[in-house]
Amino acid sequence: MGIKSFQGARKNQQSNEEDIPFKVKDFMSTKLITFRPDQSVEEVIDSLISNKISGGPVVNDKNELVGIISEGDCIKHISESRYYNMPPEDDRIESRMVKDVETIDGEMNIFDAANKFLNDKRRRFPIVEDGKLVGQISQKDILKATIMMKSQNWKK
């Protein structure tokens, strides 16, 4: 006699892609720690350390993205002032932030975003809608998305 295996009632095998979130906007962070261009590098360093983040978007009074500041930008600032044994000339992050910021669309497929992280070697991408910062997606958000999707539609 052969082995019988009972698997129970099977779920409907048709998958509706609209039920499964695949877009950047479904996984992006919306409660962001942002910075202002007139803040000092020291303030930013304190915030990065206390919030355990590696950088963040810089916005103006209208919540428009004007740059991005990272730990590396802050380290460069400190290193240059220490190298010349001089106090920093301009301590505002406006002079240290990256101003030409690459953003991605919130409607982008999460897998395309993952590929963009690999190709562009970035840690985070801001998401802007109608000129305003609405969120940010990080490499960690991509990893969380893949774990969530695995539980929904990949075989374990």
Rank of each mutant, 00 (worst) to 15 (best):
Q39W: 10
Q39G: 01
P37N: 11
S50A: 13
S15D: 10
M28N: 05
I78M: 03
K62G: 09
H77L: 01
M149G: 06
A145Q: 02
D91F: 00
V24P: 02
Q7N: 14
M86S: 10
C74G: 01
K99H: 15
G106Q: 11
S47T: 13
K132G: 15
V98D: 08
D120Y: 15
S79K: 03
Y84R: 07
G55L: 02
S79M: 02
A145C: 06
C74N: 04
D73E: 06
K140L: 15
T34M: 15
E102F: 12
F125Q: 00
S54M: 06
L32G: 10
V134W: 02
F111K: 07
V98P: 00
I45S: 00
A9L: 11
F35G: 06
K140F: 11
D38P: 10
L32V: 14
K76P: 08
S95A: 15
S15E: 15
M149T: 00
D91P: 04
F27L: 05
N12G: 09
L143I: 09
A145T: 01
S151P: 08
V128C: 02
G67W: 06
D141G: 00
V98N: 11
V24T: 07
I53D: 11
D141V: 01
M86G: 03
R124G: 11
M1T: 09
S151N: 12
I3H: 08
D112C: 01
L118E: 05
R36E: 12
S138F: 04
Q14F: 12
G131V: 08
E43Y: 01
H77W: 03
L133G: 09
K144C: 08
Y83W: 03
S40C: 07
K76N: 13
G72T: 04
D120A: 15
S138A: 05
F27D: 06
G67R: 08
V128I: 14
D61N: 13
Q13C: 09
E64Q: 15
